[in-house]
Design a protein around this nucleic acid. Sequence first.
DNA 1: TTTTTATCAAGAACTATTCTAAATAATAAT
DNA 2: ATTATTATTTAGAATAGTTCTTGATAAAAA
Lengths: 146, 146
Amino acid sequence: MSQNNNKIIEQINFGEGHRMTPQRRFVYEVLMGSIDHPTATEVFIRVKDKMDSISLATVYNCLDALVGVGVVRQVNVDREPSRYCGNLEPHAHFHCETCASVMDVDLKEGADPSNSVKLPRGAKVEKFELAVRGQCPECVRLKNKK
Amino acid sequence: MSQNNNKIIEQINFGEGHRMTPQRRFVYEVLMGSIDHPTATEVFIRVKDKMDSISLATVYNCLDALVGVGVVRQVNVDREPSRYCGNLEPHAHFHCETCASVMDVDLKEGADPSNSVKLPRGAKVEKFELAVRGQCPECVRLKNKK
DNA sequence: TTTTTATCAAGAACTATTCTAAATAATAAT
DNA sequence: ATTATTATTTAGAATAGTTCTTGATAAAAA
Ligand SMILES: [Mn+2]
Ligand SMILES: [Mn+2]
Ligand SMILES: [Zn+2]
Ligand SMILES: [Zn+2]
């Protein structure tokens, strides 16, 4: 449970006629305990440790359900497999082009990236996605060393 | 040829041992004549009009080649098929969640979206991708009408 | 209980994209 | 010019992430 946003799991409201299940709980717990934006397959592997019977299809279903109720975010990096993020604060992502890691980056206080853009007049903005790409500090350090 | 960035086609330099071909020229021309960010299949359909013999695999090859030399940009929207953009100016994209259109949005003068973010110290930024999502002006208008 | 509804699991199906291999075309070497 | 080399094209097969289908299981409602 290394993240701040984690709702008391029992309280997640899936809506009329939808249920909290052990599978959904495990998937959610794995995400709340990760900061590395795992893919569905990675989540599957991590959950399987706790619940050997779970299937990959179910992990996809659970992730969809959690994304659907808004307690988890789906993060796409080019054409690579989708990654999942338990951090609900507005934030951007830094993609390291060397080690392929994906990390959260907070917004500067009060900053709104969609303000840096000339929006088409009359458009209604719902949200933004900002990805910054380059080399993560560790990869920069490694490169400088050799 | 409705875009500004279009290099004189003959001058595109594919690098040592690479060639400009009719297929690559047609693909490039279609992109320079489009502002709607077509997918590979859409490019294929549009080129086929001019060159019936072209194959989809070749369109993918040509798009890769053009992206590789940097005269065309690949734009990804969630898990949907890649789209291609002939506008080389730094710009962001507005995705309409109603009609699924993708349009260019210019940056405000001097604005750099990656400035709105607290980068990890020591990271080296190479580029950014900013997507703004919501409803395009036309879809807003249509909705207000009814 | 019995009935209804939601979820799960396994595997089949789907689809955007990449790969393979043979044919063609352009370039370079003779 | 002829020949040899290399790049490109093409059609179709293969790949991989994801979604769909279906029968089994489990929870909730009656
Ligand atoms: Mn994140
Ligand atoms: Mn564009
Ligand atoms: Zn890195
Ligand atoms: Zn629209």
